[in-house]
Design a binder for these strands. Structure first.
Length: 268
DNA sequence: ATGGCGGTGGAGCACCGA
């Protein structure tokens, strides 16, 4: 049995107390983190090993930054998508049994407020998602066993946001971006949380502003996907909503899935 | 999109995020 958690922490250093609480309460085997907002020399590798986790980190000063933490030893396989080394948004690590673990932080894509016509960020987002889709397609063709988790920054359906009208034209839900996520789904990856929670109104993000949390003005932005080879061993998945209510929260909450490989080997 | 937004860098306030 393996528990995998993914969480956009919005600064690892600011969230360290809650990360430790999460580890203590949930005891995950694998932790995929996003928005670390630090470089490798600022990351407490030894302290996290004392907590029981090895870390593969793709860091960056101030912004972005993704990591894979695991109880078992890990090897780094990739620290960026081909052609996107300028922003730390992708990291891939491998366990000794061959299971691939990928943590992603998809670009937001929204233009700066002062330059609403500027589409460069949206173009970057679309190209980045295209590169991810191509990469995932390769893995599925190779029948690789993988888990892909992170902040996808896409409002895929109108029911995934408290008020879709407010986000019309936003880079989180413009048709071009939804189409790219639909293409990811078409590769055959399995959305773990949707297997157990298909309802609308399921959220993983509540803005710091505007009283979003007490008003439940949420958005579903985070996801855990597993390869088709792992679909049969999905036991459970969900959203750890309570982490939005603790002191000094991230604006995202952790999401999890539980895999039982014994079940899948029986089925095959 | 915005109640009194959070975080970073660098020591003001601009910039980023969603």
């Amino acid at each position: 049995m393996q528990k995998i958690i993914s969480w956009n922490v919005a600064s690892f250093r600011a969230r360290l107390p809650l990360v430790k609480m999460l580890i203590e309460k949930e005891n995950p085997d694998v932790l995929l983190l996003q928005e670390m907002k630090l470089e490798a020399h600022q990351y407490p590798f030894e302290e996290m090993e004392k907590q029981g986790y090895y870390t593969v980190l793709c860091g960056q000063k101030s912004w972005n930054g993704v990591a894979v933490l695991a109880k078992k030893p890990l090897e780094t396989r990739m620290t960026c998508l081909d052609g996107f080394a300028d922003q730390a948004r992708f990291v891939e690590a491998v366990l000794s049994d061959g299971t691939t673990l990928i943590s992603v932080y998809v670009p937001n894509g929204q233009p700066p407020e002062k330059m609403p016509q500027d589409t460069s960020r949206l173009k970057y987002k679309l190209a980045w998602m295209q590169a991810l889709n191509a990469y995932v397609t390769q893995k599925i063709t190779a029948k690789e066993k993988f888990i892909l988790g992170g902040d996808f920054n896409v409002i895929f359906q109108d029911g995934d946001v408290y008020n879709p009208a407010l986000f019309e034209g936003n880079a989180l839900m413009v048709p071009s971006v939804r189409e790219k996520l639909a293409q990811l789904h078409q590769t055959g990856v399995v959305n773990a949380i949707r297997q157990f929670h298909p309802q609308s109104g399921l959220y993983t993000f509540w803005d710091f502003q505007g009283g979003a949390w007490p008003r439940n003005h949420g958005i579903l932005l985070d996801a855990l996907y597993v390869s088709p080879t792992l679909k049969g061993c999905l036991m459970d998945a969900g959203v750890l909503k309570e982490y939005r209510a603790f002191e000094k929260p991230s604006d995202h909450v952790p999401i999890y899935c539980v895999l039982d490989e014994a079940v899948s080997s029986k089925k095959v």
